[in-house]
Write a protein that binds this DNA or RNA. Structure first.
Lengths: 195, 195
DNA sequence: CCAATTATTTAACATTTGTTAAACAGCTTA
DNA sequence: TAAGCTGTTTAACAAATGTTAAATAATTGG
């Protein structure tokens, strides 16, 4: 039934923990594959996030409605996990929205099934811990940059780290991600040395 | 031997997971108590962070040397965990320094012992996961604020969330934490409505 | 291919924050 | 008590980013 190609997911996982084929197979019956068109919503505002997505194809973004304006707080790299984590963790309605920047193919795992894995496979709980640790370190790095660097430096870092996004992700979202206005990013790009 | 009062730590833990007295007791033989004087260093730059601290008394800060200047990236609230997490996770030398803002009493757990707990008590691994999840959500919230709010709003939020720090933590560190210069915070305070 | 929409740029001006330098206030301790 | 710290404030000017509004460019759907 589920003879899909999960190579990307498997490669993602083994960067965190040694996982046999058997360890991995535990998740397969629970994985659901969905496709989103550009602009479609994965987690809506006010909805309780009860599933997590692995981006097998395409880019998601996390945004917040702030004074009637959408502010993108995060962009999900290819081949990584995304959900509205505060809602996923607390099971309260999400104030974050997750939607597709490009057409996406997602592997979906429900919270219920994830907890089943956590309960029955300590290795999966360890994997979960390691992934979230890594996400936290990333978030810290980003905070460091907000505190110590100019928008231009943050932009350069973004380009270096996610070169593929340059072509797929509109500048508006990147500007939001950097914490500046689109017009400021545009100005900054104009004045930048492009070595 | 270890007849210390661990109430604060226990109270911290049960906010995350149901823990019996027995579950908790597993950690006690591993806990070491240290006291730091104001200004003393817990994790030095270049050192591999191989232990984690629970702040039973006092405040720690995480800072980075940036162009020869100390920039405080984080302030550890009372009764919570702190370490140089990137180094703790990767076991590479830390570029972050952790030092005492005030006199501190810390409960120390080595990485080695923590992993022993993780290996032998799935409940402890679950606790670890839940704590880090929470830290991640906090970091996201702070990122949201950098992206959507002015420094004044961030300062108001800080005061509301950590009212006790106002009297214990110098403004320089708070300014850093907010991502602005001390002088800017001072100006902002002058112009603020203090309702 | 055209019209409509979306994405990006530009520019003038406003606001916020940074920079530099100095003054001031409160402690500590010789 | 005086001298030297550390922490905080002030002020003038500079730089970065925001705001508003419009023009231009690129993309999409009929």
């Amino acid at each position: 039934m589920n003879s899909h190609n999960f190579t990307n997911l498997q490669e993602f996982i083994v960067r965190y923990i040694e996982f046999s084929e058997t360890d991995f197979r535990a998740v397969i019956p629970y994985l659901q594959i969905i496709r989103l068109k550009k602009g479609e919503v994965f987690i809506a505002e006010g909805e309780v996030a009860n599933r997590i997505a692995f981006t097998n194809k395409g880019y998601l973004r996390v945004f917040i409605n702030h004074d009637g304006e959408e502010i993108t707080r995060d962009i999900t790299p290819l081949h990584s996990f995304a959900t509205a984590l505060p809602s996923f963790i607390t099971q309260e309605p999400s104030c974050e929205v997750i939607s597709a920047i490009t057409d996406c193919e997602l592997f979906i795992l429900s919270k219920q099934h994830l907890e089943l894995l956590y309960d029955n496979y300590p290795k999966w709980e360890r994997l979960g811990r390691r992934i979230i640790e890594d996400m936290f370190v990333d978030a810290q790095l980003r905070l460091n940059q907000f505190i110590t660097q100019t928008a231009e430096v943050r932009y350069r870092y973004f380009l270096k780290r996610y070169p593929d996004m340059m072509h797929e992700v509109p500048l508006k979202y990147i500007a939001d991600y950097l914490g500046i206005k689109l017009q400021s990013l545009s100005r900054l790009r104009k004045n930048m040395e492009w070595y």
